[in-house]
């Protein structure tokens, strides 16, 4: 790494601010695109920023009968998890600043930490809505986690490495893996939406049924931290899928365009599909998602054995 690149990556990543701001911009792109698909004008570009600042300056109410440590601690842990995951991911087309053997697995679990925290936050609540939301969050976690992992495992196996950097370098030097492993790409994309609890997988926070799911009792700062964590998670996960399936890191501008294409696809799916029931979500993942991902990995193993 040249000194300039090192300086840039330190300025851009651990500082977190750029990361959070880019997360907000992605969130805005997503909301705006959904609005355009619904023939609306949509939010202004600073909307997520205004939402976050407003939430941060609002009063935070702690309902009676909750464990304070969990109530105040969980949002912080969730955000920390998302920001830590960002250290190992190729954000905005810059190569990840840290990497060690096996960082792919660590990153994926850091991303799941967010869902765990939301689930626990709901579990800690005294309201029945947050309890139902928490149950649904955990159920959905068990549904999409394995297929999503398997979908990202495909490129890792093709590249023979558990390091995000190596996999994206491999992806850069070969055919785009969306062509060689199309099933994996679809599963990764849909898994991404499940991870972020976007429609049609928004049963855990279905506002028409269970108020606001696990975060019903959160107000002000806690809610803001969860929101920031979610938008950071969006950036990290989108970057990972792009780097793995759409031809590696390449140059930052091209990378940005590719990530926006993924956001566009996600917005299209969000605008098109309606919410699935939680049992339909689980059925979808375990009946089709996991099996297809396993099948693809089997084919990959056989092909590798045959070619070697």
């Amino acid at each position: 790494m040249t000194p300039l690149a090192a300086l840039l990556s330190i300025m851009f990543f651990p500082a977190g601010i750029t990361l959070i701001l880019s997360g907000m911009l992605y969130e805005w792109a997503d909301r705006k695109l959904v609005a355009r698909f619904q023939n609306r004008i949509g939010p202004r570009w600073f909307q997520p920023l205004a939402d976050t600042i407003k939430l941060l300056t609002k009063e935070e109410i702690k309902p009676q009968g909750l464990k304070s440590l969990l109530f105040y601690g969980l949002p912080i842990v969730a955000l920390t998890g998302a920001l830590t995951a960002a250290l190992y991911a190729p954000i905005l087309g810059f190569s990840p600043i840290y990497s060690f053997p096996g960082d792919l697995i660590v990153t994926l679990y850091m991303l799941s930490l967010m869902t765990m925290c939301i689930g626990l936050a709901g579990w800690n609540g005294s309201s029945r809505f947050s309890l139902i939301g928490a149950t649904r969050s955990f159920t959905q976690l068990f549904a999409y986690e394995a297929p999503f992992l398997l979908a990202l495992l495909g490129p890792a196996m093709a590249a023979n490495s558990w390091v995000i950097k190596d996999v994206s370098a491999y992806a850069e030097g070969h055919y785009w893996m969306i062509l060689t492993q199309p099933v994996g790409f679809v599963i990764a994309l849909i898994g991404l939406m499940g991870k972020l609890e976007l429609p049609p997988f928004d049963a855990p926070e279905a506002e028409t049924e269970i108020v606001a799911g696990a975060l019903t009792e959160y107000s002000g700062r806690g809610l803001a931290l969860f929101h920031i964590g979610k938008s950071v998670e969006l950036v990290v996960a989108v970057s990972l899928v792009t780097a793995f399936y759409l031809g590696g890191i390449g140059n930052p501008l091209l990378f940005l365009i590719k990530t926006l294409v993924i956001v566009l696809l996600m917005a299209l799916l969000q605008a098109m599909l309606t919410r699935l029931r939680i049992d339909q979500t689980v059925g979808l993942w375990w009946r089709y998602g996991a099996l297809l991902a396993l099948l693809q990995i089997l084919i990959l193993i056989l092909l590798k054995g045959w070619l070697a």
Binding site: R31, Q38, D51, I210, L215, T216, E217, Y218, L223
Partner: peptide, 21 residues
């Protein structure tokens, strides 16, 4: 509804009173 689209002013309908202003 989309015809009036108040999301352009940043107005959002929330389910929970804890999130609302």
């Amino acid at each position: 509804t989309p015809r009036y689209d108040i999301e352009r002013f940043g107005i959002k309908l929330r389910g929970s009173p804890r999130h609302a202003d």
